[in-house]
Design a protein around this nucleic acid. Structure first.
Length: 322
DNA sequence: CACTTGACCTGTCCGC
DNA sequence: TGCGGACAGGTCAAGT
């Protein structure tokens, strides 16, 4: 479930690794994960080099020579795994314990290891110890000329990767509809309030999750920011005061910036470019903390369902007005 | 048009 | 131990 901070972390990592690499071969065995035709791949992907990596909302944009772009959406379980050396079948280490702060498997940090492997993206529940790449969740494999590889793994097959002309990127429906970047200078409290007020009759949580209101918030950061602003997620937008929305705006920028600084994080096995785990779980204040005390008042955090999602709240800090 | 629900998927976990 | 069902959650299509 990569959200903005996780995708940003992926982008920062890939931007250090991919530029300059030339694509030699592409393999895909799940058409929905990579719907391009073989002739597209032959004409525009093989032989192209990576010129840069961008992010917009939760979408990654890998720009290639030849004015084409690989557009990647990780959705919930997508991940990009970079392997720097040619290996037919590469053993790779992953996190062994969910939620722990243990260092990664020593292999990843061992300078003697010939395998340099960097893993980006969502948690990968099946790979609880040591796995092989490609594994059964590998949907697309990019082979680079120098022998390195980029694996697109996606257990649940919701994610996708598409090759399109770079000039077409702004014309994708999603790009046309998606709201402002919450960390941009343009995203002022005034802009936020004006945009979210358009969803007057829905719940504040549904409005935050609406990517056309603002980009990049998912279930984790919706719960975290609403807790920070002391707003119950089921409150209708029209029942939230401007001053509360102002507080929420501040909280969004605070929480997202902190999450990026922490290297992002999702559940389970996520690690960042340095081979370290994002430290979100130790930072989360309500998310997945049901039955634990609220860090503010000590009241037991409860889990409910709002906007069709698992929702975590402090019943005291986030009272729901009648 | 505003808003909600179901579908897309696979793996895990819980209760029987 | 096995099995069915709920659940996980980003986005779009379909429904109210």
């Amino acid at each position: 479930m990569p959200e903005l901070p996780e995708v940003e972390t992926v982008k920062l990592g890939l931007a250090k690794l991919l530029p300059g690499l030339v694509i030699a071969h592409v393999k895909s065995d799940w058409p929905k994960s990579f719907p391009n035709s073989a002739s597209d791949v032959g004409s525009f992907l093989v032989g192209a080099s990576v010129v840069g990596v961008r992010r917009r909302a939760k979408v990654l944009l890998i720009d290639l020579s030849g004015l084409h772009t690989l557009v990647v959406h990780l959705k919930m379980t997508g991940q990009l795994v970079f392997v720097a050396e040619a290996q037919k079948s590469t053993e790779y280490p992953v996190q062994s314990t969910e939620g722990s702060d243990k260092p990664l498997d020593s292999k990843i940090q061992d300078p003697r290891s010939k395998i340099s492997q960097l893993r980006f993206g969502a948690g990968h529940p099946t790979s609880s110890l040591v796995g092989m790449l490609p594994d059964k969740s590998t949907r697309v494999t990019l082979d680079f000329k120098d022998g390195s590889k980029l694996f697109f793994n996606d257990q649940r097959k919701f994610g996708w990767m598409k090759l399109i002309p770079t000039s077409e990127v702004p014309n994708i429906d999603f790009m046309k509809k998606v709201g402002p970047e919450p960390l941009s200078d343009e995203f002022t409290a005034k802009v936020f309030i004006a945009r979210i007020r358009r969803r007057a009759n829905t719940t504040i949580k549904a409005a935050l999750l609406d990517q056309t209101v603002l980009a990049g918030i998912g279930n984790i950061y919706a719960d975290e920011t609403l807790w920070g602003a002391k707003i119950h997620p089921a409150t209708r937008v029209c029942d939230v005061s401007d001053s509360k929305l102002k507080k929420l705006h501040k909280e969004i920028r605070l929480v997202l910036n902190l999450a990026i600084k922490k290297g992002g994080s999702t559940n389970k096995n996520y690690v960042n470019a340095e081979g370290k785990k994002g430290s979100y779980m130790s930072f989360a204040r309500v998310f997945r903390r049901e039955n634990l005390p609220c860090p503010h008042c000590g009241t037991t955090i409860i889990k409910s369902r709002v906007a069709g999602r698992g929702t975590h709240t402090c019943p005291k800090c986030q009272e729901l007005a009648e």
